[in-house]
Every structure is written in structure tokens, then in C-alpha cells.
């Protein structure tokens, strides 16, 4: 018998934080892989020249996509920091003894990086939008309009 028979009598996992982190790691991983494929296509358009590339990029420059970018940053940071936590549990002798503390440490590191990053990404959006847009443009205009009114 090349493979052992698979016998399932229910979930292997008993719940709790680390199991949810396992699921969370898979969901963010699959989502990031999907984004990676889109990102490769949109970047490949650069071979078609400046007009086509910047025309495609303009679609990504509204505020809704900025919120998406914040979500992307959250997924990347969370997957990276949780990955470092997994490596620590796997390779550090006492990792499994401290796994509950490691969950807290990982969360604190995530918050410590994600909060200032989000603040920067949101404020920078409005600074650049108002600086580049035609005079009289307000923060609300920057938030709701689908396309910016400046060229690159």
C-alpha cells in the first residue's frame, strides 16, 4: 500500500487562536497569489508603451483602489508576520511552549507597522490629489470621483 488509508472522524483542529491563524494564513495566501497574477498582467502592459500603461494605471488611482491598496498592505504584512511566527514555532526549541505569547507578539508587531503605514497611505493620497488637481478640488472630490483629473 503506497499511501495510508485516510480516515476522518471530524476536524483535526480543536479551535482556538492558532487554528484560526492557520486558516487566515491560507486565505491571505490564496488572495495574494490571485493579486500577484493581476499585478503581473498590469505591469506587463508597460511593453505596450507609455499611453497604454498610464491609461491602465489611471484606473487604479481613485480612492476606492487606495482602500484596496491598504487592504493589500494588510494582507502582505499579516501573511509575512504570521509566517515569521510559524517559522519561530517550527524552528525554535521552545516555540510551542510560548505559542500563545507569540500570537500576541505577532499581533502587536502587525498593529505597530500597519497603523502608521495606513495613516501615511491615506494622508499622502489627499496631499497629492489636492496638489495635482485643478484649483478648488476638495477632499470629498478626491474621495468620490472615479478618475483623477490630472495626467500622470
Amino acid at each position: 500500500m503506497a499511501y495510508q488509508e485516510i480516515v476522518s472522524t471530524g476536524s483535526v483542529y480543536k479551535g482556538r487562536t492558532s487554528m484560526w491563524l492557520y486558516l487566515f494564513h491560507r486565505i491571505t495566501g490564496v488572495a495574494l497569489f490571485g493579486y500577484l497574477l493581476l499585478h503581473i498582467i498590469s505591469t506587463a502592459l508597460i511593453l505596450a508603451g507609455p499611453e497604454i500603461y498610464e491609461g491602465a494605471e489611471a484606473i487604479y488611482k481613485n480612492f476606492y483602489f487606495r482602500l484596496g491598496e491598504v487592504g493589500l498592505m494588510a494582507a502582505v504584512l499579516a501573511h509575512a508576520i504570521n509566517g515569521l511566527r510559524i517559522i519561530t514555532v517550527d524552528l525554535w526549541k521552545k516555540g510551542s511552549d510560548y505559542q500563545k505569547s507569540l500570537n500576541v507578539v505577532a499581533l502587536l508587531i502587525f498593529i505597530g507597522i500597519f497603523v502608521p503605514t495606513t495613516y501615511r497611505m491615506i494622508t499622502s493620497y489627499f496631499d497629492i490629489c489636492i496638489e495635482k488637481s485643478s484649483p478648488g478640488t476638495t477632499v470629498v472630490d478626491c474621495m468620490v470621483r472615479p478618475l483623477p483629473d490630472w495626467k500622470s
Binding site: 507609455p50 499622502s124 493620497y125 497629492i128
Partner: peptide, 8 residues
């Protein structure tokens, strides 16, 4: 900032 991202 990706708002400044262009061909150049």
C-alpha cells in the same frame, strides 16, 4: 506613492 507611478 502609487499616485505618482508612471511610465518614467
Amino acid at each position: 506613492d502609487t499616485l505618482n507611478l508612471d511610465y518614467e
